[in-house]
Computed example of a mutant assay.
Amino acid sequence: MLVSPNWFATRATSELLVVVDCRFSLADPQLGHQQYLQGHIPGAYYLDLNQDLSSPVQAHGGRHPLPHVATLAAKLSQMGITAATKVVAYDDSRFAFAARLWWLLRYMGHDRAAVLDGGFAAYRAAGLPVTSEIPAERSGQFVPKLKPEWVVDRMGVRQRQNQPNVKLVDSREGERYRGEREPIDPVAGHIPGAVNYPWQQVTDEGGRLRSPQDLRTYWSEVATADEIVVYCGSGVTACVNLLALEAAGIQTGKLYAGSWSDWCSYPLD
């Protein structure tokens, strides 16, 4: 689930490897694609958080609803992805967007998915080549095999809120969790019963995932729960925590896909 730049460099020409650039900026939605056009890992395709890894926003469902499965599967097929393909996603935001693709792939039944540890910055620091050449479409057949039990909706959260064997994890920064600051959504605060594990804390300053041992310690207070329901603002950076749970050997994580932006779109009680 994690590859280093050096691991990647020795396998970059493999026909069974597809690399996906997921760089994105919530403040400037065009920036990630512009960066990709200026320079990316050779052979990498680009997927946009808003256009490719989400579906259109509705009245409810959050700011980044899960993408339509058939639409994303068609795009993955055009990259040459089959059941045998290893897919490596990267960004430059401490897994904020690469982890979304990693989680989506596994949710759609493709377990041969990984993220580039340290992202594009670590790749460049290793002195590896970049290009502005856009790869051609390839012939593939991505067949989704959904794992619907990995996703929880608002009603599912409400049903689980008071269950002692379930932990609800808010992945946003502490200020947003506590309701002291809310720069995006119309309502501040958190879902009652949630505990706060900010997503940035599972990586170091270089954007590399903390060691499995460190992560097991970090998650120790929720590790024994039968289910760990993870959310953030819109179901994107929560995937970083799901990645970190998996790295710690904890496989009970589920995503509240609509997250706080869905929760607060309803009357709060």
Rank of each mutant, 00 (worst) to 15 (best):
P129I: 06
D117P: 03
D153M: 08
P135M: 05
V143L: 13
E133I: 15
A121R: 07
V143I: 15
N162D: 15
R138E: 07
S132P: 05
E149V: 13
D153C: 11
A122F: 09
L168Q: 02
V151D: 07
D117W: 04
Q161D: 08
R160F: 09
S139P: 01
V152A: 02
P144V: 09
V169F: 06
R154Y: 12
A125H: 10
I134V: 13
K167A: 15
L168F: 07
P129Q: 00
Q141M: 10
G156I: 08
G140K: 07
P144C: 10
R124Q: 13
D170R: 03
P135I: 03
V166P: 00
R154A: 14
G156L: 09
N165L: 13
P164Q: 13
N165P: 05
D117C: 04
A126C: 05
F120M: 05
S132W: 04
P148C: 12
S139M: 12
L168G: 03
V152Y: 00
A136N: 10
A122R: 05
D117N: 15
Q161N: 07
V152T: 07
K167F: 14
Q161H: 10
R124T: 10
A121F: 06
G127W: 04
P135W: 06
F120L: 09
V166K: 02
P144Y: 07
W150L: 15
S132H: 11
Q141T: 11
K147S: 12
G118E: 00
K167V: 15
V157D: 00
A122T: 09
V115G: 02
D170Q: 05
A136G: 08
G127P: 02
V130M: 06
A136H: 10
Q163G: 10
P135Y: 08
S139K: 13
L168S: 00
G118L: 02
V169T: 08
G140P: 05
S132Y: 04
R124V: 09
A136W: 04
G119C: 04
P135K: 05
V130F: 00
D117F: 03
R154T: 13
A136T: 10
V169S: 04
M155D: 12
V143P: 00
N165S: 15
S139W: 09
R158L: 15
A122Q: 07
L128H: 01
P129D: 01
V115W: 02
G118I: 04
P129R: 03
G156F: 08
K147Q: 14
Q141K: 11
R160M: 14
A126Q: 02
E133H: 13
R138K: 13
R154L: 15
K145P: 01
P129E: 00
P164F: 08
V151W: 10
W150G: 09
G127Y: 02
S132I: 08
Q159F: 10
K167E: 14
G118Q: 00
Y123G: 00
S132F: 04
D153Y: 06
P164C: 07
D117G: 05
Q163V: 14
D153N: 15
K167M: 13
Q163I: 13
A122G: 08
D117S: 08
L116C: 04
F120N: 01
V143N: 11
V157F: 04
R138C: 03
P164N: 12
G127M: 06
P164R: 12
G140C: 07
A126L: 02
R154G: 06
R138G: 01
D117I: 04
V115Q: 01
N162A: 12
Y123Q: 02
P129S: 03
F142R: 03
I134Q: 14
A122D: 06
